[in-house]
Design a protein around this nucleic acid. Structure first.
Length: 1048
RNA sequence: GCCCGGAUGGCGGAACCGGUAUACGCGCACGACUUAAAAUCGUGUCUCGAAAGGGAUGUGGGUUCGAUUCCCACUCCGGGCACCA
């Protein structure tokens, strides 16, 4: 480097130069294959039958974008690399693989723009990615690299789809799907946010299209319940549960009056409120609405509303306006299944057709939404649940009482009484006297407590069962309270006559509604305020009333009984919808499916045993398609087509070459433009496909041969014209989620060409022990993948119920300005630059040190220098390593503490504190004149997962200096250090002396000294004696090995 | 609206099960080395105060000998879901 005139020092090592040592070690590791995972399941020849303990650590495989890696992408990789390296040092056989999730829109859009084939783009991008990832020194087993767009990989994705198809899990459905004009494709619900595409933020509309669907909802229950089997953080489990949206309730039918064949089937989570139903509401799309067309007197309006809903659904998510709209179906009534009362039937777009049964029973008194709707349309309320407020206490005294809310309409204020310490601010309340009715009682109480006499009674509430403690009387009470709502007519008052002891205990105040709402804390009073003033429905539990035989029962105890009486059944419903599995894109896995006419389908179905028959589902899969090819005479007509499988022996079905990768524009992908690929001949027995030319050639050849062989007995025909039919290939491709749903299975046996992975390998390696990835993938990707895995489990293809034993997530790294890194803003931190300036080891460590792993955090290049300094400190330290040095107690303690802390922190992903502990250890060593070889080895080993290059270099130096014996091993092949639990604490401890909890002195004591000794020593301390002068010691608390607190 | 999570120096953050708040790093200041600078090393660095001592972990209350930690209410920030019956 620089010329130095300094006298030559006796330097044992040169300057730290990561640019030199990092590539060197990367090459050594690759050559020696020290990170190669060993398939003991399959290849037992190597190390006999030793059942090696395995560890499968997984990161989400990257999408190789054209922009290359940015530092945020590798946070997860570094973390799992550290864990993987530690596991290896603990003796595990570790599988830490990498691959490319290479199908997807950005590559395709780049291809559309440039005309370069996505395969070529992908090859270029993966090359960059691989170079970048290698330069960071990850301990990936590169030999197991997978690539979802490689036919050798997607062959198995197609195979799995065939299984989904065969088992009836994949089906066709004409669905209103999100159509994105700008992208020319259908998007999954999850890919559309507020009516805009997740990728690109383009507007999307609803449009009906026949689609491949995957019945993930069949697995909803298991996806929900099996979360108990895995170790994901509660945050993630919560999110997943939330997404699946399980709710238990009842399905109850309301017969259409005068039409005993038609029913409104509703789903409710509150069957206990059945007697409170005053109307029912259907989703506008509910088929029953059209069914009842003849009966509906205002059909035109109803039809208009239906249409409006359809167009509204395009905007509904963007609109913040959620005021309820709806329309009564005139002439239609539904019969209450128990009371036989006839209730009106409405349609409203707040009822979703896709959830539950697409219809609700409305209980305005006990449901917020129903209340809002009923208020707007003036529909009746019927109270069937009497609320319970407060908490039940033992030995309650029963009373009947009232609560009165009086408002002044002129001032918009409400009358309150402040009882001060006796019970805070409440409304007017009191006990009912013998023979008194509630209204009279209320009038009396108002007069007694406030003097007002001209008041008008407006409303009376249901009974409320309230539990409270009467502080004035020192008794627990259980009261049946009735709420009364009054308006003040004028301010005229009489004199308040109070008993002596009641005077000046309270003050009467008029408060604004908002003020009253916050200061009235009593649950009974607050409930009545919400009811009378805010018109809130009571949706809690309580005592049933007006509910026939169920009256008087606790509302949450009768769900099944009431459902049974109504002839309904208890059901579980989920928010989760089936997975839209079609994409109208080029750059995805082609479906191994052809579409044929009825004749071909029937012919195929009639064959019992054949390749095609074996891959066929029990239920036929068909679609109705509009002919969109203008060249065809039947343009615009609809045809019914049937799906036939291309059996597994013909896989992979390779993506054909096309001229342009842009979607065809009519809803078909670019594949639709490859006419000779799309329109083919299909053998309904073998599943062979032939293009027109080939087919004709084959036909001719057959005719010739048949003619020649006409007179021979051996006329064996390999070509049966009856088996060949015109067919059209599926032009949709699979979504990006398909490959990523199962890629982790391929890593265990990536080169297998007989099956997606050998059973033995699966048995040995799966499930994944630890999977770390982005928060954004915790719902969708994890859900899809778990579903896919469970399906494979059901067909006996994988040995475990769940794919991932443990899942964790890292926080996003933001740019230095605290915003998201983006190429367009130009705030992207490129790892290549960081490696050049600081070295990969520093980059890795800084990523771990910068803050809590699971937290979003902004990049700060300045802070990186601290990490670099630390590495250099450890580097230079080797000069002071000595074989003769013996560790002091303090050094021993800090070493053992560090082993413990670093080991535990890696496990809990507390990487920032692990690094900080390494720094503490290095700072300690820095103060020593010489460092024992054992101590130095410990810091190198602890550091090695974080900074693998520099530690291997230093390890090699130790070897050349003959300070360590084994000469062939990399430090990464050595054993992880253990700590001695006896040596993690020093023999003396500092005891803090406090007076009234304030730090007033310290004493050094033998560890484990008993409390008595501690106190004695503390009181003997001169400063303490001085401070305690003239004070009386009330109490002394001693905590072993920690403190003495003297209370005065 | 509902469900999670969070708030600590100038900055990123640490603190076990309630027991010395501010570890570690950045930055800053001063010093050593140097003709000088960089690098490196050392010292200091919550705040008021000369000191004794007081005050600080978003705000207000509570429990406790003792609270960043537990409880209640509130404010703000982040994430997820969102007319889910």
């Amino acid at each position: 480097m620089k010329d130095s005139k300094k006298p030559t020092q006796l330097k044992l090592i040169s300057e730290y130069n990561p640019a030199k040592i990092e590539p060197k070690w990367q090459k050594v590791w690759e050559k020696k294959q020290i990170y190669a995972a060993k398939d003991f399941g399959k290849n037992t020849s190597g190390i006999s039958s030793v059942k090696h303990k395995k560890f499968y650590s997984l990161i989400e495989f990257p999408f190789p974008s054209g922009e290359g890696l940015h530092v945020g992408h590798i946070r997860s990789n570094v973390a799992m690399d550290i864990i993987s390296r530690k596991r290896r040092m603990e003796g595990y056989n570790v599988l830490y693989p990498i691959g490319w999730d290479s199908f997807g829109l950005p590559t395709e859009q780049y291809a559309i723009k440039t005309g370069i084939h996505p395969t070529v783009v992908t090859r270029q991008n993966t090359k960059t990615f691989e170079r970048q990832l290698r330069s960071i020194g990850f301990s990936f087993d590169w030999k197991r690299k997978v690539d979802t767009s490689d036919p050798l990989f997607y062959r198995w994705t197609q195979w799995m789809f065939l299984e989904l198809f065969k088992h009836g899990v994949a089906y066709q459905k004409e669905t209103e799907v999100w159509w994105c004009e700008a992208l020319g494709t259908v998007l999954a619900n999850e890919e559309v946010i507020d009516g805009k595409s997740e990728r690109g933020n383009f507007p999307c509309v609803r449009r009906p299209l026949p689609q491949w669907m995957v019945a993930i909802t069949r697995y909803a229950e298991r996806l929900y319940n099996d979360l108990d089997l895995v170790s994901y953080p509660d945050v993630i489990k919560n999110q997943i549960r939330n997404w699946i949206g399980k709710s238990e309730g009842a399905e109850i039918q309301f017969e259409i009056a005068g039409n005993n064949k038609k029913f409104v089937k509703v789903f409710t989570t509150r069957p206990d409120t059945l007697f409170g139903v005053t109307y029912v509401v259907l989703a506008p799309e509910n088929p029953l609405v059209s069914d009842l067309k003849d009966q509906i007197k205002n059909w035109k309006e109803v039809h208009d509303y239906k249409e409006k809903t359809k167009s509204k659904s395009e905007l509904e998510r963007t609109g913040t306006d959620k005021t309820k709209t709806g329309l009564v179906l005139e002439g239609v009534f539904a019969t209450h299944p128990i009371t036989k009362e006839k209730v009106p039937v409405w349609i409203a777009d707040y009822v979703l057709n896709s959830y539950g049964t697409g219809a609700v029973m409305a209980v305005p008194s006990h449901d917020e939404r129903d209340a809002e709707f009923a208020q707007k349309f003036n529909l009746p309320f019927r109270v069937v649940v009497e609320p319970i407020t407060g908490e039940e206490k033992p030995n309650e005294e029963f009373r009947q009482s009232i609560v009165v809310i009086v408002i002044n309409k002129k001032t918009n204020k409400v009358l309150t009484i402040d009882w001060g310490s006796l019970g805070g601010t409440i409304f007017i309340g009191g006990g009912i006297e013998k023979g008194e009715d509630v209204v009279k009682c209320a009038i009396r109480e108002i007069k007694e407590e406030t003097g007002y006499i001209n008041i008008k009674h407006i409303l009376t509430s249901e009974k409320i069962h309230h539990h409270y403690f009467a502080h004035s009387k020192k008794v627990a009470r259980n009261i049946d309270a009735t709420g009364l709502f009054f308006e003040l007519e004028n301010e005229e008052k009489t004199e308040i006559k109070l008993e002596e002891n009641e005077k000046e205990k309270f003050t009467v105040q008029w408060k604004s509604y908002d003020e009253a709402e916050t200061i009235v804390k009593d649950p009974l009073h607050s409930y009545l305020f919400k009811k009378f003033i805010r018109n809130k429905a009571y949706s809690g539990v309580g005592i049933l009333t007006n509910s026939g035989v169920f009256s008087g029962k606790k509302s949450n105890s009768v769900d099944s009984a009431i459902t049974k009486l109504a002839g309904g059944k208890m059901v579980t419903t989920y928010k989760l919808r089936d997975w839209v599995f079609s994409r109208q894109r080029y750059w995805g896995e082609p479906f191994p499916i052809v579409w044929v006419g009825k004749e071909a389908f029937n012919a195929a179905s009639s064959i019992k045993k054949s390749a095609v028959a074996e891959a066929m589902p029990k239920e036929q899969v068909k679609r109705i398609r509009v002919i969109t090819d203008k060249k065809l005479i039947d343009f615009g007509k609809t045809v019914t087509e049937y799906a036939l499988p291309i059996p597994p022996q013909h896989l992979p079905l390779i993506l054909p070459k096309v001229k342009s990768f842009a979607p065809k524009g009519d809803g078909q992908s670019a594949l639709g433009t490859a006419a000779s690929w799309v329109h083919i001949y299909f053998n309904i027995r073998s599943g062979e496909t032939l293009g027109e030319k080939d087919f004709i050639a084959k036909q001719k050849k057959f005719e010739k041969t048949a003619f020649r062989n006409k007179n021979k007995k051996t006329a064996h025909v390999s070509f049966n014209p009856n088996d060949w039919f015109n067919a059209m290939r599926e032009t949709d491709t699979m979504p990006n989620w398909a490959g990523s749903s199962w890629y982790y299975l391929r890593y265990v046996d990536p080169l297998n060409n007989k099956t997606f992975a050998d059973k033995k390998n699966l048995n040995y390696w799966t499930p994944v022990d630890w999977y770390n990835g982005g928060m954004e993938h915790n719902t969708l990707h994890i859900l899809y993948s778990r579903f896919w895995h469970k399906f494979l489990y059901d067909i006996g293809a994988v040995p475990t119920v769940e794919p991932y034993t443990k899942r964790t997530s890292h926080g996003v790294i933001l740019a230095e300005d605290g915003t998201k890194m983006s190429k367009s803003v130009g705030n992207v931190i490129n790892p290549d630059v960081m490696i050049k300036n600081y070295g990969a080891d520093t980059l890795r460590m800084y990523q771990m040190f910068m803050g809590p792993f699971d937290q979003t955090i902004a990049w700060n290049s300045d802070s990186m220098s601290g990490v670099r300094r630390f590495i250099e400190k450890v580097w230079r330290m080797i000069d002071r390593v000595s074989v003769s040095e013996k560790d002091s107690e303090a050094t021993e303690v800090i070493i053992n503490q560090s082993i413990k802390k670093v080991s535990e922190d890696i496990e809990s992903m507390g990487f920032n504190t692990a690094v900080s502990q390494l720094m503490i250890l290095a700072n300690h060593f820095e103060k020593l004149e010489s460092i024992s070889i054992d101590a130095y080895i410990v810091i190198l080993k602890l550091l090695s997962p974080f900074a693998p290059h520099v530690t291997d270099e230093l390890w090699e130096i130790l070897k050349t200096k003959k300070l360590v014996k084994k000469s062939n091993d990399s430090i990464h092949e050595t054993m992880w250090p253990d700590f001695d639990p006896k040596k993690i604490t020093e023999s003396t401890v500092t005891i803090v002396i406090q007076i009234n909890g304030k730090h007033r002195g310290e004493i050094k004591m033998e560890r484990g000294s008993d409390n008595e000794t501690l106190i004695k020593t503390a009181f003997a301390l001169p400063t303490i004696i001085e401070k305690l002068q003239g004070l009386v010691v009330k109490k002394t608390i001693a905590v072993k090995d920690r403190l003495v607190n003297i209370v005065v």
